[in-house]
Amino acid sequence: MARYTGPTTKIARRFGEPIFGSDKSFQKKNYPPGMHGRGRRKKQSEYAIQLMEKQKAKHIYGMLERQFENLFDKASRLPGITGDNLLRLLEARLDNTVYRLGISPTRRGARQLVLHKHIMVNGQVVNIPSYTLRPGDQISVREKSKSLEVITNSLAARTAQRYNWLEWNASDMTGKFVAPPAREDVPENIREQLIVELYSK
C-alpha cells in the first residue's frame, strides 16, 4: 500500500507547526517549504483552510485519503457530534494507541511494530494498524518482542504524560484501552469542525 515516507519536517513546515513532535529542523526553518516559502503571504480561501486541516489530520495519524474518507463516513453515521466521533475513532486506532502508550516514540514506528506482529490485542497477534480498539481491550507486547531495542528504548524514555483513557502496566508491558477519549482530552491541535464542513460541501 502507498505510504508517505519522505521528510516529516517538510510536511510540518507546510502546516506551520511541529505536528510530528519536537523537531530541531522545524525550529530553524519554521516557514513554508519551497523557494518562496519566506515571502508567501497569499490569503487563503475558506476551502483551502478546510482542506489544509483535513490534510494535517491525515498526516498526524498517518492515513491515506480513502482510509480517512471511510473513517469520516463511519463517524458521521454514529450518534453525537461528527467531529468528536472522528477524533475518537482516530484515537482508537491500534497504531495510535501503541504510540500513546509509549511502546513506540512515533506513530510511524508504532505502525511498523504492528505490521511486524510485535503487538497483541486480547492475547492475539494483530497486524492491522487501523484496527479499531473497543473499551476494555488489552494491548500488549508479544513475549518474544519485549527485549527489542526499539521498544525498550522507547519505554525507557517514556515521559510522565498519561492519558486518562488508557492504562499502562510497565511490569508486563500491557496496556488497556479504557474508553474513547473526550474531545478536550485529545492533545492534537486539530480543528475538526473545519473537516466536517469540508465533507459537508
Rank of each mutant, 00 (worst) to 15 (best):
Y47R: 07
K43T: 10
W168L: 14
N70I: 05
Y199W: 08
I139W: 12
N70H: 13
N189D: 15
L51W: 06
L90D: 02
K146A: 05
R3T: 12
S147F: 10
T97H: 03
S130G: 11
M120C: 13
N169S: 04
N30M: 15
H116G: 10
I11M: 12
M52T: 09
L64T: 09
V98H: 13
G62N: 10
I195K: 01
V121H: 08
T132A: 10
R77H: 14
M52W: 04
L90A: 07
S140P: 01
Q55T: 12
R134T: 06
P181N: 01
V178Q: 00
I151A: 04
E149W: 03
K28M: 09
Q138M: 14
A92F: 02
G34H: 07
S145K: 00
R158F: 06
E192I: 06
K56G: 14
L86C: 04
P7R: 10
I103S: 07
K10D: 07
M35N: 02
L113W: 04
K201Y: 00
L148D: 08
G6C: 12
R183F: 14
I190D: 11
R66Y: 05
D137G: 09
G37K: 06
E184Q: 14
L78R: 15
P129I: 06
S171C: 01
M120W: 01
A12V: 10
N153E: 02
V114T: 12
K28D: 04
N30I: 06
R77T: 12
A12I: 05
K144Q: 11
V126W: 01
S140Q: 11
S140G: 05
K117N: 11
I11E: 02
N164D: 15
M52E: 12
L89S: 03
V125L: 11
T97E: 05
T106P: 03
K144A: 15
V186N: 10
G16Q: 03
Q124C: 04
E188A: 10
G102W: 05
E143V: 04
Q44L: 15
S145W: 04
M63D: 06
G175S: 05
P79K: 14
V186S: 06
R3L: 11
